[in-house]
């Protein structure tokens, strides 16, 4: 189950979307989240859907992989659909089953809102699927840079994010190791009553906390020894490159927005 999840997962590739600057991708996703709300009728939703599927195509992510990974999300989308169908009570009744009445407006809202939800999820997933976490961090850091004027700790935040990203696999290995060590000492993580299982978390969490603190301490010392003294006076090794594609993609989204306003009912 977890192995198939695609949230926050990066799939290496050479597609157009992979090659884009993380900044343009972040801006596009941000704008898309707003633009989605312009749509209010069949033609506008059709345009949005077409745009999204064009992006999916450009990402070269296999559809089957995307479908498999989003399966749990479909359930959520379906639930949203049901919620709207039953809660909206406007327009003529189109179906009546005993106490259950489905209104036309409910069906309409259900379809639109769940579609909107689905498109949002697809577009944000595309961002993480085609951009490495560190690129996203770099993109955010540069985009948020103006906030430094108001003493917003942009550099520190970005460094924190990148260090967390660096240590996720290490901590996963560590968790697995401690879990096995405690299992060998008679703890059961996969069976037994719920109360016991909750108790079993303590011998896992405490060693994890302690080792994380130790790591943090050692890492801080190592960073200091390597001359780290905050963001000031630092140069940057990783560089972002804004290209023609990025400008083109932004303009394209602009065009889609104009089209949406025209078609809006």
């Amino acid at each position: 189950m977890m192995e198939k999840m695609i949230f926050g997962r990066y799939v290496p590739g050479e597609s157009l979307l992979h090659r884009m600057d993380p900044r343009s991708k972040l801006i596009i996703v941000f704008l898309f989240v707003i633009v989605v709300f312009i749509a209010n009728n069949v033609p506008t939703y059709a345009v949005l859907a077409a745009y999204t599927f064009l992006m999916v195509g450009l990402s070269r992510i296999p559809l089957r992989f995307l479908y498999g990974g989003l399966k749990p999300v479909f359930l959520l989308v379906f639930f949203t659909f049901l919620l709207h169908i039953f809660m909206t009570k406007e327009g003529p009744i189109i179906l009546e089953l005993g106490w259950l009445k489905i209104y036309e407006e409910g069906l309409r809202q259900g379809i639109f809102i769940s579609l909107r939800f689905l498109l949002l999820i697809l577009v944000t997933s595309l961002l993480t699927l085609t951009t490495t976490p560190i690129e996203i961090t770099d993109g955010l850091e540069t985009l948020l840079n103006p906030l430094k004027k108001w003493k917003f700790p942009v550099h520190e935040l970005a460094l924190m994010m990148s260090i967390s990203l660096r240590f996720i696999p290490t901590l996963m290995q560590e968790t697995d190791k401690i879990m096995k060590a405690q299992t060998a000492r008679g703890v059961e993580y996969n069976s037994g009553p719920v109360k016991e299982r909750i108790k079993a978390i303590i011998p896992l969490l405490i060693p994890l906390f302690i080792s994380s603190f130790k790591r943090a301490e050692e890492l801080a010392v190592a960073m200091e020894a390597r001359g780290y003294k905050g963001g000031e006076g630092r140069t940057k090794y990783r560089q972002l490159a804004w290209g023609m594609v990025d400008t083109a993609m932004l303009l394209f989204l602009g065009a889609v927005t104009v089209l949406l306003f025209v078609l809006r009912g």
Binding site: E174, I178, A181, R185, P203, P207
Partner: peptide
């Protein structure tokens, strides 16, 4: 290996 990591 490094069994001291399991102390809690």
């Amino acid at each position: 290996q490094f069994p001291e990591h399991q102390l809690f």
